[in-house]
């Protein structure tokens, strides 16, 4: 095959055409792949705001149902500069996420109140508390974003000790950080290396309509902790961007377990 190609070696112009065609093919494949692989907004976000590691008054009450949350939130941060790999994709597709929390806080609150009328007082108290931390999060997050947008592309910001591929400022990593937050308060296990993989489907209102355990190492205690974390985290979910259902897989593990 090499020989055949060698014989037909085209001139510089042909080379350009070749190159273009191949790039186009690759581009097509990548985008196609993205479509095939479902509704995940994207795969390799680089910019990441770690909600989890910011100070939280009470991690247990990770519940953002502030009734006025939307009003006082700072404006959504500027769309993050596109990370390199995404040049291979359709730019239009990956831009929207920005900060879904700020953009869509209001509907979620409404939905929330519908669902939990009985606990309204409690919710309100929590909401006030939450709002404070929330705005702290936001400003810290914005700062971090600005710093990063201004300076180094792949900085140290984000989760300390994380590889940078952990997540991005998109909806899936937003959900991921919510789950992490809730998981902190529920994690318990009785086996050495427990693992549970769950696929979550979130409807356009931000509710989990389906959760499927796709794999479990069999630690019942750990499974309970995962389900509790999901239930807790769900209370703080905002609707996915673009009015679409969202589906993604999450793998739950104890920290530092199974990494070596």
């Amino acid at each position: 095959m090499r020989r055949a190609l060698k014989r037909n070696e085209p001139g510089p112009g042909g080379m350009l055409v070749w190159s273009f065609l191949l790039h186009a093919a690759l581009f097509f494949l990548v985008t196609q792949l993205n479509i095939l692989s479902g509704v995940q907004p994207d795969n390799a976000p680089v910019y990441y705001v770690d909600v989890v590691n910011l100070p939280v008054a009470r991690p247990r009450s990770g519940n953002p149902a502030g009734s006025t949350a939307g009003a006082t939130e700072p404006a959504p941060p500027p769309a993050a500069p596109k990370p390199q790999p995404e040049e291979m994709r359709l730019p239009a597709k990956t831009t929207p996420p920005s900060r879904p929390k700020t953009a869509t806080a209001a509907p979620s609150v409404k939905a929330k109140q519908d669902r939990q009328e009985t606990t309204q007082d409690f919710e309100e108290r929590l909401a006030r508390l939450q709002q404070e931390t929330e705005s702290r999060h936001e400003s810290a997050a914005l700062d971090a974003l600005r710093r990063r947008a201004a300076g180094r592309g792949k900085g140290q910001a984000g989760m300390p000790g994380a590889a940078g591929k952990e997540a991005g400022s998109d909806y899936s990593s937003y959900i991921q950080s919510r789950l992490k937050d809730a998981f902190k308060s529920t994690i318990t296990f009785q086996s050495r290396t427990p693992e549970v993989r769950v696929r979550l489907t979130i409807d356009r209102a931000g509710h989990i309509v389906r959760q499927r355990i796709e794999y479990s190492s069999g630690d019942r205690l750990f499974e309970g902790a995962v389900l509790q974390a999901i239930a807790k985290a769900e209370k703080s979910f905002t609707p996915p961007p673009g009015g679409q259902d969202f589906e993604h897989g999450f793998v739950f593990k104890p920290q530092g377990v199974g990494k070596n």
Partner: peptide
């Protein structure tokens, strides 16, 4: 899968 971990 996105990884969700917690310490302790």
């Amino acid at each position: 899968y996105l990884e969700v971990t917690a310490p302790g």
